[in-house]
C-alpha cells in the first residue's frame, strides 16, 4: 500500500474508482429509466394488453399504426384530467406559496416559542400523504367536524356534501393539498428569508425605506432564486398529485376530481389497455420534458450558484 496515491498511475486509479462507485447508480437509472422508456415506446405502438395472452416482447403482433397516439388526441377524459390537474396546480401552488411566504415573514426574527411553533407548523408535510387523505376524508364527511365547525360559526346547520358534490369535492381536495404542502413552502422560503443579509435590511431602513419598500427592493430580489426553486419543486410535485386525492374522492364524484395520475391509475388497473396507457405516459413524458428542460436548467443553475 506504500505511496500508491503518489504513483503516476494515480489519476487512472482515481478514475477507475470513480467509475466503480458510480456504477450501481448508473445501473439503477438504466434499469428504471432508460430500459423501461424504450419498452414503453415499443408497447405504445401496439394494442398489447396483459390480457392479450402474449408476452410483452411479442407485442409487435398487435401493431396498430400509431392508433394510440391518434386516440389520445380525442380522449376527452384525458384532456379533462389534464385540465383539472392544471386547475389544481394553478390554485394550490400560488396559495401554498403566498401562505408559506406570509408565515415565513412572521418567523424571520426571534420571538418566544419560535422553535416549537416552527416544529409544529412543519408537521403536516411529515404526515404520510395517504394518511392525510384519510384525515380529510373524515373531516369532510357531511356529518363530520368541518361542517360541525361551520355550523357553530354560522349558527345554522351546515351540511355540505363535501366529497360527493362535484364543486365541493374539488375544493376539499385542494384544501387538503394546501394544508399538507404550505409547510414546505414555509420551510424553504424561511430558509431563503434567513439568507437575506441582515445588514442590507438595516441599511435600507436607515436610508428611510419602509417595510414594504424593503420587501420589494431588497428581500424579493435576493430571494428570486429560492422562490423559483420553491415554486418549481411544488409545481413538479403537484402535477403528480395522487395519494391524498385518491383516498378522499377516488377521482369522483364521476370524474370531477380525476387528475392525470388518477386517470392513469384507472386506465392501468381497470381498463388494462396498456398499449394506450404507454402512449399516454410517453406523451406526458415528452411534454413534461420540454417544460422541465427550462425549469431544470434554471434549477441546476440555481443549485450551482447556491453551492
Amino acid at each position: 500500500m506504500s505511496g500508491a496515491s503518489l504513483q503516476p498511475d494515480s489519476a487512472k486509479q482515481a478514475a477507475s474508482l470513480g467509475f466503480k462507485l458510480t456504477l450501481p447508480a448508473q445501473l439503477l437509472v438504466l434499469f428504471i429509466a432508460v430500459f423501461p422508456t424504450l419498452m414503453q415506446i415499443y408497447i405504445s405502438l401496439t394494442d398489447w394488453s396483459p390480457l392479450s395472452g402474449a408476452n410483452w416482447w411479442m407485442a409487435y403482433g398487435f401493431w396498430n399504426n400509431f392508433a394510440n397516439y391518434f386516440d389520445l388526441l380525442q380522449d376527452g377524459r384525458f384532456w379533462g384530467a389534464l385540465r383539472r390537474t392544471g386547475l389544481v396546480m394553478l390554485v394550490c401552488v400560488p396559495a401554498e406559496f403566498l401562505l408559506g411566504l406570509a408565515l415565513a415573514t412572521l418567523f424571520v426574527d426571534e420571538f418566544r416559542g419560535k422553535k416549537i411553533f416552527y416544529s409544529i407548523l412543519l408537521m403536516p408535510m411529515m404526515v404520510v400523504p395517504a394518511v392525510a387523505g384519510y384525515m380529510f376524508y373524515m373531516l369532510f364527511q357531511s356529518t363530520g367536524p368541518i361542517n360541525h365547525i361551520l355550523s357553530t360559526l354560522t349558527g345554522s346547520t351546515v351540511s355540505i356534501a363535501w366529497l360527493s358534490d362535484t364543486t365541493y369535492a374539488m375544493i376539499a381536495v385542494m384544501i387538503a393539498d394546501i394544508w399538507q404542502w404550505t409547510p414546505l413552502m414555509f420551510l424553504i422560503l424561511l430558509a431563503g428569508l434567513a439568507g437575506v443579509p441582515e445588514d442590507q435590511i438595516k441599511a435600507a431602513t436607515l436610508l428611510g425605506a419602509s417595510a414594504r419598500q424593503r420587501f420589494i427592493t431588497i428581500v424579493i430580489p435576493r430571494m428570486k432564486t429560492i422562490m423559483i426553486i420553491a415554486l418549481s419543486i411544488r409545481l413538479i410535485e403537484n402535477f403528480k398529485i395522487f395519494d391524498t386525492l385518491y383516498i378522499m374522492t377516488g377521482g369522483g364524484p364521476g370524474t370531477a376530481t380525476e387528475t392525470i395520475s388518477v386517470y392513469f391509475y384507472k386506465v392501468t388497473t381497470q381498463d388494462l389497455i396498456w398499449g394506450y396507457v404507454a402512449a399516454l405516459a410517453l406523451f406526458i413524458l415528452v411534454v413534461l420534458s420540454v417544460v422541465a428542460v427550462y425549469a431544470m436548467k434554471r434549477l441546476a443553475l440555481a443549485i450551482e450558484v447556491a453551492a
Binding site: D199, Q200, K202, A203, L206, L207, G208, A209, S210
Partner: peptide, 13 residues
Amino acid sequence: GKRNVGFVFQNYA
C-alpha cells in the same frame, strides 16, 4: 429611518 444618520456597516452592506 427618521434619525437622519448615515451608517457605514462593517461589510458596507
